[in-house]
Amino acid sequence: MIPADHAIILSLVLFSIGLIGLLIRRNLLMILLSIEIMLNAANLLLVTGSYIHGNLEGQIIAFFVMVIAAAEVTIGLAIAILFFRLKKSVDTEKLDLLKG
């Protein structure tokens, strides 16, 4: 039997790592990649919940999270391409179009 609380701790560690990546990266693509790590941590937590409670609801929600993640990354990368076409860079420091 896998210790359920250790699986939860693993998901917390991965979520924190994703959050660190989100904060310290200045590349739009790497920020999206960190969001993927955080979504995966959430999925792991849902699957662990399903493992603890012995029903399948958590796995169904994890399935829906994956669908949303796929749609999110498609739109995010489209925005990254648009931004790159505009500025020839994906550095978020250059993302100052709305600055007065």
Binding site: M1, D5, Y51, G54
Partner: peptide, 11 residues
């Protein structure tokens, strides 16, 4: 303390 369910879930 969190424990696994008595019967293993099969997705």
């Amino acid at each position: 303390k969190l424990l696994a369910a008595s019967e293993k879930v099969h997705g």
